Simulated scan of single mutants.
Amino acid sequence: MYKRVLLKISGEALAAGSGFGIDAIFIHKVAEEIADVHALGCEIAIVVGGGNFFRGVAQQAIDMDRVAADHMGMLSTVINSIALQDAIEKRGLFCRVMSAIEMHQVAEPYIRRKAMRHLEKGRIVIFAAGTGNPYFSTDTAASLRAMEIKADILLKATSVDGIYSADPKRDPKAVRYETISYDQILRANLKVMDTTAVSLCRDNNMPMMVFSMREQGNITRVVAGEPLGTLVTP
């Protein structure tokens, strides 16, 4: 259904419930799903968070300068990106990590035209180090990169099966939305993404699908057009 997608995966998801680090079994399952999406003929770019190692707004950074803490968070995303690249390449696919912070020994510098060329050649591209700027989350980086590479849709893989009116883990009466607009998310202050990312998608007409990645095969199903999760429209 989609020719080119950008997949956003949280760092916490790669920890697979352990809270810290990378779960080796789970990251290979994710790589397998990405390979399945690639086999459909879909061009796929990925943004990975770094919350399984360090978050600039987390408790452990409470006494740190925000800029320094955010730079540490960006480096965490590079660790996750290299780990995911390794798992994907073990599937026999070509994968490139492009970092917003230059570190030539471990990743290519992010250059938009080069990223699009990689995608056109059938390579999987992982965008690391967020936007390269403090105060911007990896959600904002995913929104920005999705628009820069002209993705058809932004796919946000989470631990829940869509967007709810409240936290479903705390409120049993929470209702899941089939579709919702960015304006509704902002008005209701739903914690789907930070407001910068939501506004960026809204202002540039970028659709987004929020779905659970806990069930094997969900990424492939979403790309194939199955109605999973919540569709967010401008």
Rank of each mutant, 00 (worst) to 15 (best):
E226N: 04
H38S: 14
S99I: 07
G92I: 14
S99D: 00
P168K: 11
M193A: 10
V125Q: 01
E33F: 08
V232P: 05
R221A: 12
Y2S: 02
R117Q: 14
D152T: 11
F127I: 02
M103R: 08
K8V: 03
I44T: 11
A87C: 05
T131Q: 01
A129S: 14
M98N: 03
P207E: 03
M72T: 14
T158A: 02
L6H: 02
H28M: 02
I27G: 02
K3H: 15
S76A: 15
V232Y: 10
G225S: 06
Y135H: 13
N52P: 14
C201M: 13
M103H: 10
S143W: 07
V97H: 09
A69F: 13
A35I: 00
Y177V: 14
A100R: 07
Y135L: 00
S212W: 08
G92V: 13
Q59C: 00
A115V: 10
I219C: 00
H118A: 11
R4D: 03
F54K: 09
F53E: 05
D86S: 11
I124C: 06
V223P: 01
S212Q: 07
D171K: 14
R91V: 02
A87I: 07
A146C: 04
R123I: 00
K8L: 06
V106A: 07
G21P: 10
Q60V: 15
G41S: 05
V30K: 07
D63E: 10
I25M: 00
S212V: 03
V198L: 10
M98E: 10
V5Y: 07
L14W: 09
L84P: 04
D86H: 14
D86W: 05
A128H: 06
M147L: 15
H71F: 15
K8R: 06
V198N: 01
K169Q: 12
I185K: 02
E215M: 12
D161K: 13
C42E: 03
R202S: 13
D23P: 09
A142V: 06
P134A: 05
Q59V: 12
T233P: 04
G50L: 03
G56K: 15
G92C: 06
G225V: 03
L231Q: 08
F94R: 12
A142H: 11
M116L: 12
I163A: 04
R66S: 03
R4A: 01
K8M: 04
A31S: 14
R4S: 01
D161R: 14
T179W: 04
A141L: 01
V232D: 05
P207W: 12
Q184T: 15
E12W: 09
A16Y: 15
V57H: 12
F211W: 09
I163L: 05
V175H: 14
I27Q: 05
L155K: 04
N52K: 08
I185H: 08
S143F: 09
Y110Q: 01
R91K: 15
S159M: 11
G17Q: 01
G11T: 07
L84M: 04
F53K: 01
E32S: 12
A129M: 10
G17N: 02
A87E: 05
G217R: 06
L155D: 00
L144V: 14
R113N: 13
R145H: 08
N204V: 06
G217I: 13
E215V: 12
T77Y: 12
M116H: 08
F136C: 03
